[in-house]
């Protein structure tokens, strides 16, 4: 990542960030001295073993956690001083959306993204509705508007959740394992969509994901976390080398550029996890 240009307005800047959960325990999810910058229009995958601090990084970026030391800034606002409402207009978060339990319609869910722009018990304006419809068109969910959200397939739910996030009109879109539990077609649709939004709207995208192949396929930059520290950041082919993956994931793998697609492949090997204890 380049460190040039107006750093304070970058969609995401972490500078020397330390964080430990108060209830600590085994120290899982702690992060140490994280420094990272995502430029305008950047697209970053955050990968690493379980408990390496990926979700902690995302929650710090969203301002859900405040750093014990160091600084997190989103689009010029420091998360430790900015109000939640201010951040909600700049940063949107998409996790794995469970069923809501109540029969909200899809358009109602997308309009929830306008909540940071509303006051009290007031209803959404025509402008809010236009933003929501635009977000639904961009995510290919405009035909679902009248459906009950809980009745959708998991792929549709994820795309509606992205539409809800877009309705916030964010400069930074954060995603936590958005493709988990999706089949290969829905995964492809989702990451195609994220790439398209990144290109056409310039929305910066930061996503946590487990699938190293998807990370290499869709993300020009990959950040690899190990035990709460930033192990490496850069182009997929540099970061996800055989030696690095083997060291960080403590698993033997097969890493190669696929001759047919030119794409980086990281494949598991039978028994590979046993050889590195």
């Amino acid at each position: 990542m380049s460190h040039a240009s107006d750093g304070s307005r970058a969609p995401l800047t972490l500078a020397g960030v330390n964080y430990a959960y108060p209830s600590g325990g085994d120290g899982g999810g702690r992060v140490y001295e994280l420094s990272l910058q995502v430029e305008r229009g950047g697209m970053l995958a955050v990968v690493g073993p379980n408990g390496s601090g990926k979700t902690t990084l995302l929650r710090l970026a969203a301002g859900l956690l405040l750093p014990d030391s160091g600084q997190v800034s989103c689009c010029g606002s420091r998360t430790s001083v900015a109000s939640r409402a201010e951040l909600a207009r700049k940063v949107a978060l998409v996790g794995q959306q469970p069923a809501l339990g109540f029969p909200y319609s899809v358009i109602e869910v997308v309009l929830m993204g306008r909540a940071p722009y509303l006051e009290g018990l007031s209803l959404e304006s025509e402008e809010d509705l236009a933003v929501a419809h635009d977000a639904m068109r961009a995510t290919g969910t405009d035909h679902l508007g009248g459906r009950v959200f809980d009745s959708l397939s998991s792929g549709e739910r994820q795309r509606v959740s992205v539409a809800r996030a877009l309705a916030q009109q964010p400069e930074l879109l954060l995603l936590d394992e958005p493709g988990a539990f999706l089949d290969i077609r829905e995964q492809t649709r989702l990451y195609d969509l994220l790439e398209e939004l990144n290109t056409s709207r310039g929305t910066a995208v930061v996503s946590v994901l487990h699938d190293l192949n998807l990370a290499a396929l869709y993300f020009p930059t990959v950040a690899l976390l190990n035990k709460g520290r930033l192990h490496a950041v850069g182009a997929p082919a540099e970061v996800l080398s055989y030696a690095t993956v083997r060291e960080v994931f403590r698993t033997d793998v097969y890493v190669a550029i696929n001759d047919l697609t030119g794409q980086l492949n990281v494949l598991p090997i039978k028994g590979g996890a046993g050889n590195n204890e």
Partner: peptide
Amino acid sequence: NLSGLGDDTAASLGFD
């Protein structure tokens, strides 16, 4: 209205 989205998503929309 937002509580069904989960605590983290609700917080990212500005609600505790």
